[in-house]
């Protein structure tokens, strides 16, 4: 964990009535910055917040947006729940998978992309939806996703 993140986490810890409330924000911060949470990160956070390591692991392994394994620079999450799949969301994941040549849970060799199917993203009114890192894309179709992936490959990304 670099000093900059560490300082941010210490700052976070002081924001809440109790230090340990900063656990989730701290884990999310590391996830966002580094794309995954390492064992060292877990131990460091436990140390900063003076809480047991097991409790930090318990939280880190509970929430789906946190990853203990390295994921791609662009983590493409496709909603596969009822509404999205009724509106053909599942073909999206097959398409992306084919386009990138990876299966769910895998990372492209260049480390750029990973794919995951996720439960509801709260976009049922604009289904189907995908989430790339923290950016929501709604009313998706194959054409749109093609364009997005291409622009990501070229490094032109707004998210």
């Amino acid at each position: 964990m670099d000093d900059k993140i560490k300082k941010l986490i210490i700052k976070l810890a002081h924001r809440f009535p109790r230090k340990e409330s900063a656990l989730l924000p701290a884990l999310s911060l590391i996830q966002k910055r580094n794309g995954c949470i390492t064992e060292d990160d877990l131990m460091e956070i436990a140390n900063i917040m003076n809480i047991p390591q097991a409790r930090v692991f318990s939280a880190a392994s509970f929430y789906t947006m946190l990853s203990l394994k390295k994921i791609g620079k662009y983590h493409i999450q496709v909603c596969t729940n009822v509404v999205c799949s009724l509106l053909d969301g599942e073909s999206l994941i097959d398409y992306v998978s084919g386009k990138l040549g990876i299966q769910e849970g895998e990372v492209t060799p260049d480390g750029l992309f990973s794919i995951a199917s996720v439960e509801c993203l709260g976009s049922c009114g604009h289904a189907p939806a995908i989430l790339i890192n923290m950016a929501h894309y709604e009313n998706m179709d194959l054409k749109k996703i093609d364009k997005i992936i291409d622009s990501l490959k070229k490094g032109e990304w707004r998210g």
């Binding site: 996830q31 929430y63 789906t64 946190l66 439960e119």
Partner: peptide
């Protein structure tokens, strides 16, 4: 008021 973000859990 603080905004507290979840991390993926229904």
């Amino acid at each position: 008021i603080d905004v507290f973000r979840g991390a993926g859990s229904y």
